[in-house]
Design a protein around this nucleic acid. Structure first.
Length: 463
RNA sequence: GGCGCCAUAGCCAAGCGGUAAGGCAGAGGUCUGCAAAACCUCCACCCCCAGUUCAAAUCUGGGUGGCGCCUCCA
């Protein structure tokens, strides 16, 4: 597999540190609110990466943190008049509710910053001991000039950064670029005891401490949104490598943004859509399909129209799967088209792999899936062998499963009254009383269901 | 000001030197009692201008237009 590595700004062949094993750390949410569709992109994209690597036979350890202490947490807790831990607990639960709906597998390890204060303190002590950090009035800062390579990943030299520095200038810092590892307690803030007095960890240090704790000093893949490259990830690299003297991460992956009207979606512009709100109106699997419809590094525009397009595309997949499902019960002879399709199933798999191997090109991979859908429709339109339908369906499900798209229509019980109406309609139809049949179908439609007459008989679906 | 990214049909989106995948929408048709679904056909001189090459959407240079990062941010 080839992965675009932000470190080198090019696609590189992915070679894991240990054969057959992959360690991935993905920056998770700050749990102070519902997450928006822009937040959802990395969750879905890197979940897809994980699923793909697992499918290819790797033993994957996937770590995604919860940031449960920072300014946003403290402010929000105050507004809500609850404690920070209460806020965190609530939005971790809400995170899982939305993430589950999007088909995001739960991380193998989901560490919380507040549960790793000890690890963080130990790491800060190491940095101070090695001369890469210093205490100042209860704060601890990382000394950026102590790492000459600083900023390499963001393609910015120390000089560039210094000239354009817009960071807070505090007299506690020796250099404006230095960043906080530990922040002394301010009035009414949650705090933990430390060698520098009461305080709390800075943002960047938690990811370094937790990722290395669970994945080792050097691990394979670290992922997140592009906006995290600087300063978050740059700082992680600096402090981690300063602490261990070893390379921190081999491959850095960064997803592009989701825009609204070609503008970045952000809280300050107030143009964001939470996944929770979208879920009220749209199928979450369509949302996932939308998120995977472009290669993960390119920016994509969010709009209702895009979700509707994805919804219709999803329906096309579902229709084909239903056709295959119905055909499974049949015992017709396989036609020529079917034979050809069955023979070419491995080719679809191969093309799918080629697409995914190319830096997780899900857009291309989806193209392969849709071609398979069309061939399935052609081959099984008027019957076919149950066996053939079964293998086609399982290939389709396998590929969709890698993308995390559960296209299986969830079997809902059709209410008895609807079934009764459908039976009456069948009788009317058999009697060639089409007027009555159509009237009954309209009635069913009005009740929120759909009737379709297929080769295998009538089908009732929820509209 | 510094550092990057992008520009393919009405809307999305692959393509990475050999003559434009796929999805949505639209038009016509086939099938069907009618619908629906499905299938078939149609719908792109790849932002502009130069250059390299037998051959460029694909490489180079220059424009133009959009976006991002440099500050909390997925």
């Amino acid at each position: 597999m080839r992965i675009f590595n932000t470190l080198t700004r090019q696609k590189e062949e992915f070679v894991p540190i240990r054969d057959g094993e992959v360690g991935i750390y993905a920056c998770g949410p700050t749990v102070y609110n519902f997450f928006h569709i822009g937040n959802a992109r990395p969750f879905v994209v890197f979940d897809t990466l994980r699923r793909y690597l697992l499918w290819r036979g790797y033993n994957v350890t996937f770590v995604q943190n919860f940031t449960d202490i920072d300014d946003k947490m403290i402010n929000r807790a105050r507004e809500e008049n609850i404690t920070v831990p209460e806020l965190a607990q609530r939005f971790i639960e809400e995170y899982y509710r939305d993430a589950d709906a999007l088909g995001i597998k739960r991380a193998d390890i989901a560490p919380r910053a507040t549960e790793h204060i000890g690890d963080i303190i130990t790491m800060i002590q190491t940095l101070i001991g090695k001369g890469h950090a210093y205490e100042s009035d209860g704060d601890v800062y990382f000394s950026v000039p102590s790492m000459p390579e600083y900023g390499k990943m963001s393609a910015q030299s120390l000089d560039d950064l210094e000239s354009g520095a817009r960071v807070d200038v505090t007299d506690r810092k020796r250099n404006p670029l230095d960043f906080a590892l530990w922040k002394a307690q301010k009035p009414n803030e949650p705090a933990w005891d430390s060698p520098w007095g009461l305080g709390r960890p800075g943002w960047h240090i938690e990811c370094s401490a937790m990722s290395m704790k669970y994945l080792g000093d050097t691990f394979d893949i670290h992922a997140g949104g592009v906006d995290l490259v600087f300063p978050h990830h740059v700082n992680e690299v600096a402090q981690s490598e300063a602490a261990t003297g070893k390379p921190f991460v081999h491959y850095w992956m960064h997803n592009g943004h989701i825009n609204v009207n070609n503008q970045k979606m952000s809280k300050s512009l107030n143009n964001f859509f939470t996944v929770r709100d979208i879920a009220r109106e749209y199928d979450m699997m369509a949302v996932r399909l939308f998120l995977l419809s472009a290669q993960y590094r390119s920016p994509i525009n969010f709009s209702e129209e895009m979700i509707e397009q994805a919804t219709n595309a999803l329906t096309r997949i579902r229709n084909a799967m239903e056709l295959l499902l119905r055909t499974q019960g049949l015992d017709d002879d396989a036609g020529e088209a079917e034979h050809l399709l069955i023979e070419s199933l491995p080719i679809y798999r191969k093309r799918f792999i080629e697409a995914m191997d190319d830096d997780l090109n899900t857009a291309d991979a989806l193209g392969v899936v849709f071609e398979l859908v069309r061939e399935a429709n052609i081959s099984f339109a008027s019957g076919g062998s149950g066996e053939g339908a079964k293998s086609t369906l399982s290939m389709l499900q396998e590929l969709l499963g890698v993308l995390g798209i559960d296209a299986q229509q969830h079997k809902e019980d059709i209410p008895k009254e609807i079934v009764a109406l459908a039976e009456k309609r069948m009788q009317a139809r058999d009697n060639k009383d089409y007027r009555e049949a159509d009237r009954l179908r309209d009635e069913i439609t009005a009740l929120g269901y759909m009737m379709e007459d297929t080769v295998q008989g009538p089908v009732i679906k929820k509209a």
